[in-house]
């Protein structure tokens, strides 16, 4: 079971995760309007910017984050933005959307000029997240855990970050045990996705370069 304090952390994190999301009108634009390649590029860029702004608002709600050194806050966000973005996008692709919406989204991304070599691992990741049938609580906690990675570049006080990440890991571990009693590997599988995210993050800079050139 979760302690009262752990339950409070979980509710708080989930509420913040649900509250801070990309504005609906922007998401609608992505589905409803037709764009040429340049406008497509601009829209995806605006979405990425919005993703980062939403991520920062969510992160401010993670218990203890605001008390961290200001430059360390930036190092954590810079280091995790891409991973958190892929995690949030994975949720879009695994949710049951109205008929045809997933295809429109996938088509738009495939026609954005990003090279196939980067698109395939991205959709493989979305698929592997989909297989886990993650609950909203797991998404919110995993995002918080990703942000609070103590090994990000330029981080000065790693121990302070570890102290914030550990309780989140424990809440996720217990939550998994409660929700998936017949799948003892579920928690380990979730953490395994973080390793995949690292790989995507690693290739992201390369992907952007190829996209810009294209």
């Amino acid at each position: 079971e979760l302690s009262q304090e752990q339950q409070a952390i979980l509710s708080f994190i989930v509420e913040a995760y649900q509250k801070h999301r990309i504005p609906q009108d922007m998401a609608k634009k992505l589905l409803q309007e037709h764009f040429n390649a340049d406008e497509n590029f601009l829209l995806l860029t605006e979405m990425a910017t919005s993703h980062v702004q939403v991520l920062v608002e969510f992160t401010k709600n993670i218990p203890g984050f605001s008390a961290l050194d200001h430059e360390d806050q930036i190092a954590l966000l810079k280091g995790s933005a891409v991973e958190a973005m892929f995690l949030r996008s994975a949720q879009v692709f695994t949710r049951k959307l109205p008929h045809g919406h997933t295809e429109v989204l996938e088509d738009r991304i495939r026609k954005s000029g990003i090279s196939e070599a980067f698109i395939t691992p991205m959709f493989n990741f979305y698929k592997s997240i989909g297989e886990l049938q993650m609950m909203q609580e797991e998404h919110a906690l995993l995002t918080a855990i990703t942000i609070l990675s103590p090994d990000r570049p330029y981080l000065k006080d790693q121990q302070a970050v570890e102290r914030l990440q550990e309780p989140m890991l424990e809440v996720l571990r217990r939550f998994c045990a409660m929700q998936h009693p017949l799948e003892p590997q579920h928690f380990a599988r979730l953490l395994g996705r973080l390793t995949e995210l690292r790989t995507l993050n690693h290739h992201h800079a390369e992907m952007l370069t190829s996209w810009r050139m294209s």
Binding site: T45, E46, Q53, K60, K78, A81
Partner: peptide, 21 residues
């Protein structure tokens, strides 16, 4: 537009609460 800003600029602005700029 925000899309011309780098990742760090967007983070710094958002941390300071200047989303409207």
């Amino acid at each position: 537009p925000a899309s011309n800003l780098g990742l760090e600029d967007i983070i710094r602005k958002a941390l300071m609460g200047n989303l409207e700029e």
